[in-house]
């Protein structure tokens, strides 16, 4: 598999230099503030529905072969 996608932007873990379009516009107009708030609320909701131990969930999800 030679051509691995390298498109993912570099992520600075918790860095103070926001890089994504959503984050970069936070300081801007009210519309983008609203968008950032929406994103926060989406991520909060996701946190409430997902099992907190991601690794256990992923590792526990094993099926037998199919078809």
């Amino acid at each position: 598999m030679s051509a691995q996608p390298q498109k993912q932007p570099h992520r600075h873990g918790g860095g103070d230099q926001p890089e994504s379009a959503d984050a970069a516009q936070v300081q801007g107009n009210p519309q983008s503030t609203e968008r950032a708030a929406e994103l926060d609320s989406l991520l909060d909701e996701i946190d409430t529905v997902l099992e907190s131990n991601a690794e256990e969930f992923v590792k526990g999800f094993v099926q037998k072969g199919g078809q």
């Binding site: 873990g13 890089e19 959503d22 992923v58």
Partner: peptide, 18 residues
């Protein structure tokens, strides 16, 4: 991508697979 950016996670983090 939104989750990874916001939480500062690398794509290899199990949270993203979850």
């Amino acid at each position: 991508q939104d989750v990874a950016t916001q939480k500062g996670l690398d794509l290899s983090h199990p949270r993203l697979e979850q």
